[in-house]
Design a protein around this nucleic acid. Structure first.
Length: 237
DNA sequence: ACTGCAGGTCAGCAAACCAG
DNA sequence: CTGGTTTGCTGACCTGCAGT
């Protein structure tokens, strides 16, 4: 039975600001991230401008929570499966029109939605069969179906924002910072020998993780005091 | 290397709908 | 009433990732 050690870390100075043990499954880790962000806001009045994370945090509900509820910029790769590689049009070939809430296909036709939310998360935008039947682009679009449909997550807006950040210079900088942060976890296992926990249960895991975080922060503080980082050194790293 | 899981898209069917 | 279109639904399938 495994636990994950989740840290909320200030990327500028590498200081751990919160710790949360969770089950070693993604949903739980995402939940831990939310818990830590809210707790840190409550305790210290600190709220990050951006959150750096891997694709595990790139699922639609998390992105929506960050963007819509917290106003935090998601520097997170978007979990995106909409690209097709069989030669037919991908969703990105369809243009979304937010004012009319419709997609426009490469042939210029509209795809509307009935507004029904499937599985609690997806809207389907469908083309009219009448349009598709006579469309010269049909072989590249929906060769096996009478009409094309485009799934769109109800939180697609948040995903769009995350997508627009990905690939920017700021995003690359964040990614680099994240790499450095990952060293904390290697350190945990190798130096602090936290590969295996000694205390039992979730509370035991939480306690060990907190102690480890304290130890790591003390080391960090010591090195920060000894060698205060000039701002440009942080930047060029 | 293999496997299971999680988040997601795709395809196709049948029921509902609707205009003539 | 009828035949075609739209809609809801569901299982298959895809893919990255982490645990073993």
């Amino acid at each position: 039975f495994a636990y994950s050690d989740n840290y909320l870390i200030d990327v500028k100075f590498g200081v751990i600001v919160d710790v949360e043990a969770s089950r070693a499954i993604r949903q739980a880790e995402v939940g831990a991230a939310k818990t830590m962000i809210e707790r840190t806001e409550e305790r210290f009045g600190l709220k990050p401008e951006r959150l750096v994370g891997d694709t595990a945090y790139g699922a639609a509900p998390m992105l929506n929570w960050l963007v819509e509820e917290k106003g935090i910029a998601p520097h997170i790769p978007v979990f995106d499966k909409s690209k097709r590689d069989d030669g037919t049009f991908s969703r990105s070939d369809f243009r979304y029109d937010p004012t009319g809430d419709v997609y426009h296909c490469p042939g210029g036709k509209r795809l509307g939605t009935s507004g029904t939310v499937h599985e609690g998360k997806t809207l389907l935008y469908r083309a009219s069969k009448l349009d598709c039947d006579v469309c010269p682009l049909k072989p590249q679009c929906c060769p096996k179906e009478p009409s094309r449909k485009i799934p769109r997550d109800i939180h697609e807006h948040a995903r769009d924002i995350a997508r627009s950040i990905a690939g920017t210079e700021g995003f690359e900088f964040s990614r680099h910072q994240r790499k450095k942060i990952e060293m904390n976890f290697a350190h945990l296992k190798r130096i602090l020998k936290l590969g295996r926990l000694r205390l039992r249960g979730p509370q035991g895991a939480q306690d060990e993780f907190v102690l480890a975080a304290i130890a790591q922060n003390l080391r960090r503080f010591a090195s920060l005091v000894a060698r205060p980082p000039p701002a440009q050194a942080l930047r060029s790293a």
